[in-house]
Write a protein that binds this DNA or RNA. Structure first.
Lengths: 123, 123
DNA sequence: CCGTATCCCCGCAGATACTG
DNA sequence: CAGTATCTGCGGGGATACGG
């Protein structure tokens, strides 16, 4: 009812969506590959290595729709399609890198916690 | 083969895991609820509102295993179980908040991109 | 009150084959 | 080369019932 409350839940929805996009299997991998330089579809596919054509297409579409990736079709034959990050995409990389850095710095603590937990609960 | 390369892919695995944990449906919601103060299971359940008992349990177990959440069983009758963030959990909240803030600041750009995309591709 | 076990449904993701 | 279409399996996650 209260505007503040509505705004809060709205924000939560958006942030939740964002976390999902960031957390899904391929999106951030694609984005980091594109971070280095624009690439065509097949370069990206080979670079990532394990991704199916379908999932790469889907990921790129989602990222394009959200404005993180720009798609350019070169009218050559055979067709050539280039992908690159937009400004928004590059900016997104900043907070994501923050999370990545934090993870790198704290993997040990996490793994230690896991070992301890497993030690107490698995046997 | 090269140590650097191995480290890189290892890091990627870890970071990818972290992004998944952060991006999964309930984890961060639980963590932000706990951020405010320790809570017992049922409070958490009611607070979040839409989560099933199963998923709340699962989320809490995962978070506990990774060392983000501490679980305390009070030997009363009926039993009472309290959850609270660990130091690690609270620290995690920092980079996550960074991403959340970035999202809040850029929702309009994302939604604008979506509308434009849908306008061009849906009809 | 808290947790586990069981069942079941739905959507994601891989494989494959086909079009522009 | 890039993308779509179709099929299928597998696992996440909800509902329910029961145990400690």
């Amino acid at each position: 009812m209260k505007p503040a409350h509505i705004a809060e839940t709205e924000d939560c929805r958006q942030i939740s969506q964002m976390l999902s996009r960031v957390g899904d299997k391929w999106s951030m991998l694609v984005v980091t590959y594109l971070g280095e330089e624009g690439m065509r579809f097949s370069e990206l596919r080979r670079g990532i290595g394990n991704i199916s054509q379908k999932m790469l297409t889907t990921s790129l579409r989602n990222l394009e729709r959200d404005g993180f990736v720009k798609r350019t079709v070169l009218p050559t034959s055979p067709p050539r399609v280039d992908y690159e990050l937009t400004d928004l995409g590059r900016e997104l990389l900043v907070p994501v890198a923050g999370l990545a850095d934090w993870t790198r710095e704290n993997v040990h603590r996490i793994e230690t916690a896991r070992k301890e937990y497993d030690l107490l609960h698995k046997p």
